[in-house]
Amino acid sequence: MEEDISVDAAIAGSYPEESEALPTRQHVTGFGFYVYLLSDGILFAALFAAFAVLRGATDGGPDGHALFSARNAFIETACLLTSSFTCGIAMLACDRRNRFMTLVGFLITAVLGVMFLTLEIREFSDLVARGAGPDRSAFLSSFFTLVSTHGIHVTCGLLWLAVLLVQFLGRGFTPAMMRRFLCFSLFWHVLDVVWIGIFTFVYLIGGYL
């Protein structure tokens, strides 16, 4: 990649005595993306705090016990956890420049992500149909905000992955592709970490306790 060479050359040119020890463009991009993900964690923390504060504010409407299905949450968890695992396997295949396994790993990741989203959309439309939409109470507003923010992240991740796979078919293992796959895999793993918080605090503690 031309751009990589120019950036590395520019860095090396500034401090010639240190050129060997300097980080590559991939390290810099990866770290920047990691910092973005940490800031995304703060966003979700604020939404979790809002949900915890408004948990009892049901305005006489249905609460978590009446609405949440642990069975549905368990299947969603299984989809997302397995897709995180297959995403990791695809990254290992990337390391070994194994085109076929990379493609298969990311395709399974995408299919499981779509399954997760389908279950979530079905759950949301079911809640709205039962009169428990986001406009019913502060509790439901905070529930829909928290869970659908995660769902929107998953949707964006799936669109991103689709674009990456099309690029990958055309270009193969270029440094730019490796960098993008790295950022995507970090994003996908972090979404799974956020989901651990959602199934624990929303569906288990909110649904049973």
């Binding site: 990691y34 695992f85 990337c94």
Partner: peptide, 28 residues
């Protein structure tokens, strides 16, 4: 220089070792 700050991002040690099969299987 902030570019010096980090030599190893998560999931990206030198020459791109994204963990191992065993690590992912244990974690899963």
């Amino acid at each position: 220089d902030p570019r010096r700050a980090n030599r190893s991002t998560p999931s990206l040690q030198a020459h791109g070792h994204h963990g191992s099969w065993l690590g992912y299987v244990i974690g899963y």
